[in-house]
C-alpha cells in the first residue's frame, strides 16, 4: 500500500515534478485533440510521432536562422519586439503546415486510391523518423554541444515558466483552450456536424451529399496540424531545442488519450492529465529502480489492449454513470 502511495504521489512530491506533469499534459492535449479529430472523422492517424517531430524540427530551425536570432537580439536589447513576434508566428504557422502536410498525405492517399490511412500514416511516419534523426545528428546539429540536438532558440522566443523551476508555461492553458474550441467546432457548427457524421456514417454522409472525401482529407490534415502544434510548443515552451527522439512515444500516447476520451476533445483535457500523471509516476518509479526499461511503451501497450475492450466491470461502471447523467 505504501509503495502504491509512493508511486501515485511521486509526481506531486515537488513543484518541479508537478509543474512538469502539467507541461507534459499540455503537450499531450494538443496532440490528442488532433488524434481525436481524426477519430471523429472516421480515420486513424498513426503518424503522430513524425508529425510532432517534424514540426518541432521546423520550429527549431526557423527560430535559429540568423535573421530570427537577430530579431530576438533586437527584442532582448529593448528594441522593437515586432520582428521577433513575426518569427515566432512564422515558426508556428510552418509547424502547423508541416504537421498538416504529414496528415494530408495519408488523407489524400485514402481519398484518391483508397489506401488505408492506418497503415500509410504509420509508414510515412516510420520512414521519416530516421530521416529527421539523421538531420538532427548531422547537418542541423549544434556542433558546439555534446547533445544530438539543434542549436537552442533565443531567450526571447522561450515561453516563461509559470511554476519555476518546472517547465510549466502558458501552453498548458492554450492546450485546454484548443481542446475546448475543437469540441465546440464539432458540436456547434455545420462543418463539425458533417465531419462527425462522415466519421460514424460514411455511406449515409455520401448519400446525403456531404463531401466525404474532402472531409477525410480535412480531418487528417487538421489532426496532423494539431500534432504540429504540440511539436511547436515542445520547442518554445519545453525543450528550447530539437533533440533526437523528442517525440518518442508522444504520438502513441496521444492516440491512447484520444481513445480513453472516447474521441471527445473536451474529455481529452482530464484524460491527458490522468495519462501524464500515470506516465510521470511510472517514469519516477523506473528511475529509482535497478532495472531500466521502456515503461512508456508498456503503459501505452496496456492502454491499447484494454481501451476498446468491453469488460464486464467497465460496462457496469458505464451504466451507473449513464443513470447518473440521466437524472
Amino acid at each position: 500500500m505504501n509503495a502504491f502511495a509512493e508511486f501515485a504521489l511521486g509526481p506531486f512530491s515537488s513543484l518541479w515534478h508537478a509543474g512538469n506533469l502539467l507541461d507534459k499534459a499540455g503537450l499531450l492535449m494538443f496532440a490528442s485533440t488532433g488524434a481525436a479529430f481524426a477519430l471523429k472523422s472516421g480515420t486513424f492517424n498513426l503518424g503522430g510521432e513524425a508529425q510532432i517531430y517534424a514540426s518541432a524540427l521546423v520550429t527549431a530551425m526557423i527560430l535559429s536562422t540568423p535573421s530570427a536570432v537577430a530579431a530576438a537580439e533586437l527584442a532582448g536589447s529593448g528594441g522593437s519586439a515586432g520582428p521577433a513576434l513575426f518569427f515566432f508566428a512564422l515558426a508556428c504557422a510552418l509547424a502547423l503546415a508541416a504537421g498538416g502536410l504529414l496528415g494530408f498525405i495519408p488523407g489524400e492517399l485514402k481519398a484518391r486510391f483508397g489506401a488505408s490511412e492506418l497503415l500509410t500514416s504509420f509508414l510515412l511516419s516510420a520512414a521519416l523518423l530516421p530521416v529527421i534523426d539523421f538531420l538532427i545528428a548531422g547537418p542541423l546539429r549544434d556542433e558546439g554541444k555534446n547533445l544530438l540536438a539543434t542549436p537552442a532558440i533565443a531567450d526571447a522566443f522561450r515561453m516563461r515558466s509559470l511554476l519555476p523551476p518546472s517547465l510549466m508555461n502558458a501552453s498548458f492553458f492554450l492546450a485546454c483552450g484548443t481542446a475546448t474550441v475543437a469540441a465546440l467546432f464539432l458540436s456547434r457548427t455545420r462543418a463539425g456536424y458533417r465531419l462527425s457524421v462522415a466519421g460514424t456514417a460514411p455511406e449515409f454522409a455520401r448519400f446525403a451529399g456531404f463531401p466525404v472525401k474532402r472531409i477525410t482529407v480535412a480531418g487528417m490534415t487538421a489532426s496532423g496540424a494539431l500534432h504540429g502544434l504540440a511539436g511547436f510548443f515542445a520547442i518554445v515552451g519545453t525543450w528550447f531545442m530539437c533533440h533526437q527522439g523528442l517525440s518518442s512515444g508522444m504520438g502513441w500516447s496521444a492516440l491512447a488519450i484520444a481513445l480513453i476520451a472516447r474521441h471527445n476533445p473536451l474529455a481529452v483535457i482530464p484524460a491527458s492529465l490522468l495519462y501524464a500523471w500515470i506516465e510521470s509516476a511510472s517514469d519516477i518509479a523506473v528511475l529509482s529502480s535497478r532495472v531500466s526499461f521502456d515503461s512508456t511503451a508498456i503503459v501505452q501497450g496496456v492502454i491499447f489492449l484494454f481501451i476498446s475492450a468491453k469488460l464486464p466491470i467497465a460496462g457496469q461502471l458505464r451504466a451507473v454513470l449513464k443513470k447518473r447523467r440521466a437524472r
Binding site: S187, V197, A201, F204
Partner: peptide, 24 residues
C-alpha cells in the same frame, strides 16, 4: 445504412440537409 445509420442520433439523421452553419 444508406438512408440513415444505426449509430446516428435521430435528430442528426433528420436534419442532414438543414443543419445551420452555427448550431445554437
Amino acid at each position: 445504412w444508406r438512408g440513415s445509420n444505426p449509430e446516428l442520433a435521430i435528430g442528426h439523421m433528420l436534419c442532414a440537409y438543414r443543419m445551420p452553419r452555427f448550431i445554437s
